[in-house]
Design a protein around this nucleic acid. Structure first.
Lengths: 222, 222
DNA sequence: GTCTATATATAGATAGAC
DNA sequence: GTCTATCTATATATAGAC
């Protein structure tokens, strides 16, 4: 692994552990036992490190929802999308837990993030329009309701981990806690899904949890 | 106003404007044109200032939901509770927008906040049990669903302002934006309210907005 | 690419005079 | 209660040698 990559990995780990505002460039360099000068050879400044990590986040988020693209696969995939999304937020919790502050201190990052959020929200809206159309009869969702709903889904998805972090230390947060996040988001859509779909998604989520429990040890950054 | 009170007011204003992590004790003192020593006569340290503000927040939050106490008044009061709550979060947005970080850096504040949140969530759950019982027949809410719902209401209420702050500068956020927050929370409960109640709450919210538009100019801290 | 050394700014906080 | 003066730690960042 090149030093550039090591810097990015160390930054993520330290940001998650101590909070991005308690971790400066010197701490990252100390941690890797390289010099500050070395770090500044690879990155112009601290903000550039965070912006680079944000590009990584964007890719991870894309992969997380890919399986849910309308018209592909079964409704059970909704379960994957929910759990994957919560996992991405967990993986990069330093970012989502300090959004306002991070964006305020870096206009470039703010522009990147905002553009990205608009696209994602529009996509989410389209996906929900597709997923939630079953009950489109009497209780049918207006376009306004759909927008509000999509925003609620977004807010809960992005902030569930932060909600958790307040009642638990990072190293006490477990896979079932992430699953709870998926159910938390699902609850918002529940009134607009039929019983069969809800059952399908529940089953998928429990299957995913079992896989996760077996496969690998739970790492704070993974 | 005593210097102690002026320090608290200045801290709130500066924290909201620049973010609490960009505002140190020296900046607060500079802003008030008093000496750092003076500030440290009134408060042991920066954390004590924030903890003191948190007590103020707790009081404001209590007042915000008081009108919604079960058994008192009409369902339209739900509208007041929603709007009042969003207003409190707006007023102290520096706090809610940096919760994870602030609590991580001050264990005493974390203990205060956590205790408070548990009480508030239990209360919210009780209130929802009361408000949402109308449809308690076929689609009836289980106790589990009620807990998840209460948590969703909490997450959206606390994070709506942060969501807004990312797309708008502080001084561009208007009263209608706060109203949107109330509707955003209402949307979560909507499936469990009857049409008449929804209409009542809508009316109340619009009335409240008109009052607000007339009464006073919009201040960033008020 | 990586290092050492250092410039500069600012943070939190305290001692002691008035 | 309020001030001046100051200590100490740490942050970001750069220059220039290797």
């Amino acid at each position: 692994m090149s030093n550039r990559e090591r810097i990015l990995e160390a930054a993520k780990a330290l940001f998650n552990q101590y909070g991005p505002l308690n971790v400066g460039t010197n701490k990252i360099a100390d941690y890797l036992q390289i010099s500050p000068g070395n770090l500044y050879y690879h990155f112009q400044n601290r903000e550039e490190i965070i912006r680079t990590i944000f590009l990584e986040i964007s890719d991870a988020a894309d992969r997380a929802v890919q399986v849910g693209t309308p018209g592909r696969g079964s409704m059970a995939d909704l379960g994957d999308v929910l759990l994957n999304s919560v996992q991405v937020v967990w993986h990069y919790r330093f970012f989502y837990g300090n959004l306002v502050q991070l964006l305020r201190n870096d206009p470039k990052l703010k522009a990147l993030y905002l553009q990205r959020r608009e696209t994602s929200l529009a996509f989410l809206e389209a996906v929900l329009r597709d997923w939630l159309q079953n009950r489109h009869d009497r209780d049918g969702l207006s376009e306004t309701d759909l927008k509000i709903l999509a925003t609620n889904v977004w807010i809960v998805a992005v902030n569930w981990i932060g909600f958790l972090q307040i009642e638990k230390e990072d190293n006490q947060i477990t896979r079932p806690d992430l699953l709870r996040g998926a159910f938390q988001i699902l609850e918002i859509m529940k009134p607009y899904l039929d019983q069969e779909t809800i059952r399908l998604v529940h089953d998928r989520l429990h299957t995913r949890l079992q896989e996760l429990e077996q496969n690998s040890r739970f790492g704070n950054t993974g």
